[in-house]
């Protein structure tokens, strides 16, 4: 049974409860305290320690009645792709697909090589490189952790030079039948968790409803997104083009390029081997 998220931007009020509930449950540190000036978005992106991130898209348009403002918010998250770049890239097998169809990083296996980071077409997964506390490490302050848990995290992260981090779809909670922390917290049920087939149906009905109301609603990732990735287990309802929410319009699964790469390398190697053979062992070479 595959489970996932359907995140509906038309129900999002941008409260960021998902970000906090996620951090609280997964005991993740803050990513620093920097004002960006980008609307109400000061966490800016998904990171190794920010597994839900709310986009704030401000738009203005001028119509006959004056300036119309709109403000669309969307809680972004790991897409848990059907064919996941990070999972395919992972050389240790730390990233697996679990029994809920989610893409899960096993922190005890991950060696922090960072190959998954560059292999995600959505820029989701990242390394957690340090955990600290207090003024000396304010950027990563986990002022809220118990000492023993902080030490455990330090051992797992700091001493090893980093592990990859991203949404687990609350694997630990799902194991005991609980809903992921973000979906549970979300006050307006913009984040819905459930069996993926149900969610897709719900999403399609929702799009029809909204379109009937004249809303420019579209789904992202409910069906195959192309590029070999397939459908997304965490998909979205948008009211603007994907780029407005920092989502790729045409993502591509990186591993689809491997065959060509190996062929190109083989071509070069063969060419050079032939030339080398001629130089070293051919008529002229041996002479």
């Amino acid at each position: 049974m595959a489970t996932g998220f359907f995140t509906d931007s038309t129900l999002c009020i941008g409260c960021k409860a998902c970000e906090v509930a996620c951090k609280q449950w997964n005991e993740l540190p803050s990513d620093g305290f920097e004002f960006t000036g980008n609307s109400y978005d000061n966490t800016s992106q998904l990171s190794g320690t920010t597994w839900r991130h709310v986009d704030f898209v401000e738009r203005e348009s001028v119509d006959a009645e004056g300036i119309a403002t709109s403000w669309s918010m969307l809680s972004d998250v790991c897409k848990h792709c059907t064919h996941a770049g990070c999972l395919e890239a992972c050389p240790t097998g730390a990233i697996i697909r679990n029994e809920f169809g989610s893409v899960f990083v096993q922190p005890d296996i991950c060696n922090g090589c960072g190959y998954c980071v560059v292999s995600c077409p959505f820029g989701v997964i990242d390394l957690i490189e340090a955990v600290g506390r207090g003024d000396d490490a304010a950027k990563y302050s986990v002022a809220t952790l118990h000492d023993d848990r902080l030490n455990e995290r330090k051992t797992a992260v700091q001493a090893t030079g980093g592990v990859a981090g991203k949404c687990t779809l609350c694997y630990d909670r799902q194991r005991v039948g609980m809903v992921p922390a973000c979906a549970k917290a979300c006050p307006t049920e913009s984040i819905q968790f459930g069996e993926i087939d149900d969610l897709r149906e719900r999403a399609k009905r929702r799009v029809e409803t909204l379109q009937a109301r004249g809303v420019d609603a579209r789904l992202y990732g409910a069906d195959d997104v192309g590029g070999g990735i397939g459908a997304l287990n965490a998909f979205f309802l948008l009211t603007d083009s994907p780029e407005a929410y920092n989502l790729p319009a045409e993502p591509v699964l990186p591993s689809t390029r491997q065959a060509m790469g190996y062929a190109a390398a083989a071509f070069a190697a063969l060419t050079l081997a032939t030339i080398g053979w001629a130089i070293f062992r051919g008529e002229g070479g041996a002479a």
Partner: peptide, 28 residues
């Protein structure tokens, strides 16, 4: 000599990905 070129071109990084034919070959 060649796999490192494949390794980087089989990623999402646009520059690397664009070089899926060239990078492995000139790496070799």
């Amino acid at each position: 000599a060649g796999y490192t070129g494949v390794l980087i071109s089989a990623t999402a990084i646009p520059f690397w990905a664009t070089g899926k034919r060239h990078i492995p070959a000139f790496s070799v």
